[in-house]
């Protein structure tokens, strides 16, 4: 393939400048600021800072509260990703069967992706409300069973379900597109070979979804680590007793409620490193297994 080169370098620079400026202003500059802050002790009310080296990291990483936040975040990421991908896959397999009314259904499935995270959180607050929500029927059968404002495990389950729900529609779009790009003749050939509907899904459709599956996995894991703030804030506020205090939420509450800018910056850097490491691992060890040609 021939590539077009710009003879004039400063025109090339001008063309890419807007993109570079945006990335710089919204990523590199704040990221480098966070790294700088994580190495200093910042005064809460302004007025200078002191260089402390890696002291902040030592403090954060020796704090058992922070380790419990990491644990909760990992549980949340794995569970909501698994739930979101599983649900989306099942729904997409059904939509791909093109049963009556699947067009309407497809559009309806995509809508939730347009809803902002805080709105999702608010909606689920009603759903999970122990007194009036859908889940209150549990309390009707067995009183005092469902109460996420007191029970940490229940609160985490609630946040996982809400987080997964938000991702389902996004995943669904990709899974459906991938399913529909599988040639019809392949499933027909499998039908001629004697495989029923479920067998065809297992032996032909799912293996061919592997590249999409991997892409969605990376996106979902990253998303559940970094983009779950709105749900936690509206649903639980990190509680009860820090049971849903995800890393990204803890950054916010330590930084803007506790005015511990340096601690929050340190946590941001750790979170960034964690996400980069996870993505690297996925590309290194998972991606090579998903190509079939």
């Amino acid at each position: 393939m021939r590539r077009a080169y710009f003879k004039n370098n400063w025109i090339a620079a001008l063309v890419v400048a807007p993109q570079l400026i945006i990335i710089f202003v919204f990523f590199y500059w704040p990221a480098s600021q966070a790294i700088y802050w994580s190495l200093t002790l910042e005064q809460p009310w302004g007025g200078g800072n002191t260089w402390v080296g890696l002291e902040n990291f030592r403090t954060v990483l020796s704090d058992p509260v922070y380790w419990s936040s990491i644990r909760v975040s990992i549980i949340f990421a794995l569970a909501s990703t698994a739930l979101a991908m599983g649900m989306a896959m099942i729904l997409a397999l059904f939509a791909d069967r093109q049963l009556t009314g699947y067009r309407l259904y497809r559009v309806g499935m995509i809508w939730p992706y347009a809803i902002a995270a805080p709105a999702v959180g608010l909606a689920f607050r009603f759903v999970f409300n122990p007194n009036a929500g859908l889940f209150s029927f549990i309390n009707t059968i067995a009183p005092e069973t469902w109460n996420p404002t007191l029970n940490g495990t229940q609160a985490l389950i609630m946040v996982i379900i809400a987080g997964a729900w938000k991702l389902v529609s996004y995943n669904f779009i990709f899974f459906l597109a991938a399913l529909q790009s599988i040639p019809r003749s392949l499933t027909e050939a499998a039908a001629m070979d004697g495989a029923g509907v479920l067998r065809r899904m297992r032996d032909v459709q799912l293996p061919l979804l592997a590249p999409t599956f991997f892409f969605i996995l990376v996106i979902n894991i990253t998303d559940s680590f970094t983009d779950s703030f709105g749900i936690v804030d509206t649903l639980t506020g990190g509680g009860p007793a820090r049971a849903t205090d995800l890393m990204v939420y803890k950054i916010y509450s330590d930084g803007f409620r506790g005015f511990d800018y340096s601690g929050a910056a340190t946590q941001s850097v750790i979170l960034m490193g964690l996400v980069i490491a996870l993505t690297f691992i996925q590309f290194r060890y998972v991606e090579r297994r998903v190509h079939y040609t």
Binding site: P183, S185, L186, E188, A189, A190, M192, L208, Y292, T293
Partner: peptide, 14 residues
Amino acid sequence: GCAMVFQNYALYPH
């Protein structure tokens, strides 16, 4: 009890 050969072969690529 039929077997079919398709135009684009329809082999399972994986």
